[in-house]
Design a protein around this nucleic acid. Structure first.
Lengths: 99, 99
DNA sequence: GATACATTTGACAACTCAGTCCAAAACAAT
DNA sequence: ATTGTTTTGGACTGAGTTGTCAAATGTATC
């Protein structure tokens, strides 16, 4: 079990580099309270936040996206028995589709 | 390019075994027009449809879920640059989380 | 305690969305 | 063409969601 959520992930990093919700939220151009909710998992993160977040938190965009995807997949598909196989297949198809 | 959508997938199968929208929709306990829309991609398929669909269309549930997942991932994450890597990572984490 | 700053909470508006209803359209047959 | 059957289109609704605002709470420090 256990899987770091996207919210915890960015909160940890934000505290690490000692930025306030306010600063980060302003950079994302959203309300402080929205970011607070995202960090605590009370609201989902919009994909729009990902790039700016990686910038201001000085994180690799790939890592940010990966964490985001993993979290969302867990939430969206958590109940499916064949999730693993489905993901493997999806990955295959998407890789082959790439240009 | 090209990736079969969930809707096309079930429509093909439905026509193959010659069932009407009506019959299948009744089995899923939804409106005919809803199923029509799902098949044409105008509405998303609810996860609730998956098991009943696999039953009445005589399809392997795993295949149904896989197609559903792939389609939805494409729609939900289509724009992310690092989707492939993200999926690989998600798969890893989910596999290790199992039980 | 009072001031200042950071975070959380809850009510709310605006919007989106899945599904229904039913009428219209398309498709078969004869 | 008319009848019966299947499929689609469009308007609508009830539910859920996202983000904002303002008030409340927390945390220092003076």
């Amino acid at each position: 079990m256990s899987n770091i959520t996207f919210g915890v992930y960015i909160r940890k990093r934000r505290e690490e580099i000692e930025l306030t919700l306010n600063k980060v939220a302003a950079y994302l151009d959203i309300d402080t309270s929205t970011l607070s909710k995202v960090e605590r998992g009370e609201r989902p993160a919009s994909p729009d936040y990902l790039k700016p977040l990686s910038e201001i938190l000085e994180l690799d965009l790939k890592e940010v996206q990966t964490t985001y995807i993993t979290d969302k997949i867990n939430k969206d598909f958590g109940g499916l028995e064949h999730l693993s196989e489905g993901l493997k297949e999806a990955e295959k198809q998407i890789k082959s589709k790439k240009k």
